[in-house]
Design a protein around this nucleic acid. Sequence first.
DNA 1: ACTATATGTAAGTAAGTACTTACATAAGGA
DNA 2: TCCTTATGTAAGTACTTACTTACATATAGT
Lengths: 185, 185
Amino acid sequence: MTSNIGKRMSREERREQILESALKTFIEKGYNGSTTMDIAKKADISEVTLFRYFDSKKQIFMDAIEPILVSSLKESLVASKDLETIEKLEYILKDRIKFISKHHEVIKLILMESQINPEIADFNFINQITLLLQDLIKEAGIDLKNEGIPLRLLMGSILSFLYLPEVNDEEINNYVEKLINIIKK
Amino acid sequence: MTSNIGKRMSREERREQILESALKTFIEKGYNGSTTMDIAKKADISEVTLFRYFDSKKQIFMDAIEPILVSSLKESLVASKDLETIEKLEYILKDRIKFISKHHEVIKLILMESQINPEIADFNFINQITLLLQDLIKEAGIDLKNEGIPLRLLMGSILSFLYLPEVNDEEINNYVEKLINIIKK
DNA sequence: ACTATATGTAAGTAAGTACTTACATAAGGA
DNA sequence: TCCTTATGTAAGTACTTACTTACATATAGT
């Protein structure tokens, strides 16, 4: 071996480190553009070691995106139960947009692969967000007969934070407050 | 030859037909996920014929997306010169969103490949749209110090028509009119 | 009828790629 | 000290894929 110093890790640590490296690689090159060798190099291990931790490239991909995929669709229930409905919408929106803004690279990866990878398409990512937003709109008592304009404004806002993500929490709070004011009417 | 009947085309026709088939393939599978064989099969020709028309897969891709790429960034100058600035914004927005909604698949493909393909990233697609919108906002005299909220509303709206594209022209007109009313203040 | 053009089939090349097998070695805990 | 565990190198397998070469054939226009 050449320089194996400081490379040894516990199985758990290594697994997590591989998934991190894999995610970075997939974000840079997409699923089909990433090779298992790319991922191994980024994790600074050999390709053989990589396959000692995962059965296939597909499995690596799934395990890598899973935490974000799950978290991004999970409503932030914490502390939102006590709020009035319109305030709940505001709270959840702020919380979710902060999350999306923070993880915009991974979420764009998921959106990307949704178009071309049947297994990812099955998650119906956009569809699930749409349903979630429709629920919130209904719950907040905002006119749904308004030809879907509130829904489109909300979805558009979320997407804008994916593609124009350079913002801090203050700016997000500010934007959402003004957006809620617009939608309330 | 087995069944060559009705397959012969003029060079121009065949070229266009290959580009159409290629675009469909790329939309379905992405650039890296599409093989030249896939494209040839969709065009109902042999792979050899395909390479008689194009030098490389990359060239096919570029030639296939080019018309949409160019058109989507071109302001619709027609008849927009005589309009007042706020009406110009409304007119252009309606026109561009109709275009985007109509070609949402190709534009999503471009956005997708922008993330992973350096040559496509060079087009700075999102950046160019941002600049275009900023110009229009400025020209329309809409408060730019408003922390970029109008810009984000416009960009978000455009993106929403990429991901929630099932609309007709009436709905787009209606949405844009209400959006302009919101932004005007 | 002749000729340019469009297309096909067959076959191959060179490179890449997911994943495997076999064997060696060093580190860490018991 | 022993043994489990993490990791490496070397080599290979089976498959895919962009792109080429060579040769044959049918069609359309002149």
